[in-house]
């Protein structure tokens, strides 16, 4: 039985661990303390928790100030607010000064569900990717979210971590090494490569099994760090499999797939298909319904794989 857990829980657990290990770790939240799981830290380390109220711009600049005194602030809210609402504050107060602030955006993606478009963050990778000095991590499961949080505290500089609201299957294992900026090959294959992050990693593995039934060997890469991107892994996959599919719970514009396409087009262009949301806002619905509607499923990935193989054959 696969263990199911939301990635935000992995963050909450890691933050508790960090609180114990490092007294410089502080947390801030903009009135979503329980939802983001920063509440677990608040309950244990109230002196190092700063409730900032519904003012995200103030929160990210305040976090910048805390980091200037040597603190390691984790500032959490929903992804829509963590990226868009406070973008200029992140640009000037954090990225421009290259400060050691950890930006936690929970409730990422369309799978937020019924809350609808205003609360579905489908642009964060793009909004953060265009900022110099920024690192972006999109963990694929709760365990990876935990490792990513702990690693981000050791890493000096701004980091954005995108987390999900709902329970998702655990894919990674306790002993496996997580390294910021180093993609993980989860499954080998020679016909094409599926590069995914977040929730789509699990779907990619399912898609790969489906394709195997037809005799298609699909490599699956977990690109948990869209920035800095693991160019070597991408170029190697392009050279060895000569076809790429990317899958992300995000707009295809400026997202992880775009980042992959930039690497490919400059280094080793091969046919490519992107699974993601195409130039529209989200809407209300059950998470599963929405993922299906937007094609963010193993079936959607299988379809893209068949298309990319046609392009590859055409040469």
């Amino acid at each position: 039985m696969v263990q199911m857990k939301p990635t935000r829980d992995g963050f909450g657990e890691a933050l508790l661990e960090l609180g114990e290990k490092n007294k410089d770790v502080v947390a801030l939240c903009a009135d979503l303390t329980d939802s983001t799981r920063a509440g677990w830290f608040r309950d244990k380390y109230p002196d190092r928790f700063i409730s900032i109220g519904i003012s995200e711009q103030d929160m990210y600049s305040t976090a910048a100030g805390l980091s200037l005194t040597g603190k390691i602030p984790f500032a959490a809210t929903f992804g829509v607010f963590a990226s868009g609402r406070a973008w200029d504050q992140i640009r000037i107060s954090i990225a421009y000064m290259n400060l050691n602030v950890k930006i936690i955006g929970t409730h990422g993606g369309i799978s937020v569900g019924a809350d609808g478009a205003t609360h579905q963050a489908i642009e964060e990778i793009g909004l953060m990717r265009i900022l110099p000095n920024m690192t972006i991590i999109v963990p694929c499961d709760a365990l990876e979210a935990k490792k990513a949080t702990i690693k981000s505290a050791e890493y000096k500089g701004p980091v954005y971590i995108r987390l999900g609201r709902n329970k998702s299957p655990n894919i990674t294992k306790e002993g496996e090494k997580f390294e910021i900026g180093k993609a993980m090959t989860l499954k080998d294959g020679s016909d094409l490569t599926i590069i995914a992050c977040g929730l789509m990693v699990h779907e990619s593995l399912v898609a790969s099994d489906e394709l195997a039934k037809e005799g298609i060997k699909a490599r699956v890469i977990n690109l948990h760090t869209p920035k800095p991107i693991d160019k070597d892994a991408i170029i190697k996959a392009a050279k060895e499999t000569k076809a790429i599919v990317t899958a992300e719970e995000h707009l295809i514009h400026c997202g992880m797939g775009s980042a992959v396409s930039e690497v490919l087009s400059e280094n080793f262009p091969v046919p490519m298909k992107m699974v993601g949301i195409r130039d529209r806002f989200g809407e209300s619905g059950e998470p599963e319904e929405l993922l299906k509607k937007f094609g963010l499923t193993s079936a959607g990935i299988v379809k893209a794989a068949r298309e990319v193989l046609k392009l590859k054959k055409r040469g």
Binding site: Y60, T62, G65, L66, D88, R91, I92, M97
Partner: peptide
């Protein structure tokens, strides 16, 4: 600090004041 986009310095000052107090 770096500054120029107005309105951010006071929040940063708050953060520094909180950090120093901690």
């Amino acid at each position: 600090i770096s500054s120029g986009s107005l309105g951010q310095g006071l929040s940063i000052a708050n953060g520094i004041a909180l950090g120093l107090r901690l």
